[in-house]
């Protein structure tokens, strides 16, 4: 009897509070019936060996508790594909955000430290990933419990709306890198809005006075490009219109780069102690505009070929 009591106590510890009394009461009755059957109707005469055999047959206390009161999964297996997609998309957005935070931290530094930059990105990502994982899992648990996910997943769809077999799809990694580039560009262009003047004054690099004229134009271009990249993240099939707009965007960038290469530089050395670096920076930026324009031209050729296939 002592062994049965110990077994029941072990099972009880694993059970939810509101079910303990009822389940243990029933389990005790069932075990006594099993013992009674093995001892010709006299359970009190059962030796430890017989009781142990019955308890082993019944299962490990933890297993028994789980069989009587199964735990409901946080995410149902039917919802798993959607859960994985939400987690991976959220992780991408989080990484983007961490990269931006790391980059703004880098801009504020007086010297470039690669390890500090990577540490910032990884640190930000890890500290944000845990609450995100908990929030998404909780949302799935809550919505799954109330049947809202299955309702949403069984929404009507039409086979007529399926994309063509040979549909051209945009690259998700390209869209993500474009989102990052544009957001970073906007942040850099608008440093006066978020960077303290004393920090900005300490920077080696800064914008020339011509930037005041260019800031609005470049902001509009970057904002349109950002909106396009975000749109492509969600609508991944190319159409003649969307790919055409994308090619047009590239033409605008190429034209802008070629024009800027003929203008006074927008980025200048602002620290007087580093003024001897001015000619080096000017030649680097000149080459940068040309190289950028060449790379974008090659990409435009590729996209025009793709556009003709649509």
């Amino acid at each position: 009897m002592d062994m049965i009591n110990r077994y029941l106590k072990a099972v009880e510890r694993e059970l939810p509070e509101d079910k303990k009394v009822d389940i243990i009461r029933e389990l005790r009755a069932n075990l006594l019936d099993e013992i009674e059957a093995k001892t010709s109707g006299n359970p009190s005469q059962a030796d430890n060996k017989t009781v142990a055999k019955i308890l082993i047959e019944n299962g490990h206390p933890q297993t028994t508790a789980l069989q009587y009161a199964p735990l409901s999964p946080l995410v149902a297996s039917d919802d798993m594909p959607l859960y994985k997609r939400v987690i991976s998309h959220s992780a991408m957005v989080l990484f983007l955000f961490s990269l931006l935070m790391g980059s703004t931290h880098l801009v504020e530094q007086q010297s470039i430290n690669v390890f500090s930059f990577l540490y910032q990105i990884v640190g930000n990502f890890v500290s944000l990933a845990a609450p995100l994982l908990i929030a998404v899992t909780w949302a799935f648990y809550y919505l799954g419990k109330h049947g809202q996910l299955s309702q949403w997943q069984s929404k009507k769809w039409s086979p007529y709306e399926l994309p063509a077999e040979d549909v051209e799809m945009n690259s998700r990694s390209d869209s993500i890198s474009e989102v990052i580039t544009n957001v970073f560009g906007l942040l850099i262009m608008w440093t006066p809005l978020w960077m303290a003047p004393e920090v900005a004054n300490k920077l080696i690099l800064g914008f020339s006075s011509d930037m005041e004229h260019w800031r609005i134009i470049l902001t509009v271009v970057a904002a349109i490009s950002l909106a396009g990249a975000v749109y492509r993240l969600f609508f991944r099939y190319w159409t003649k219109l969307t790919l055409g707009a994308y090619i047009l965007e590239y033409f605008v960038y190429i034209a802008g780069m070629l024009y800027l290469s003929t203008q006074p530089q927008l980025i200048v050395i602002t620290n007087s102690q580093a003024s001897d670096l001015t000619p080096i920076l000017a030649s680097i930026l000149d080459y940068a505009w040309y190289i950028g324009a060449i790379i974008l031209t090659l990409l435009v050729i590729k996209y025009i070929k793709q556009w003709r296939r649509l």
Binding site: E26, N30, E57, T63, T64, Q67, Y68
Partner: peptide
Amino acid sequence: IDEGTLYP
């Protein structure tokens, strides 16, 4: 059928 399956 074993008891661990039937009773629950």
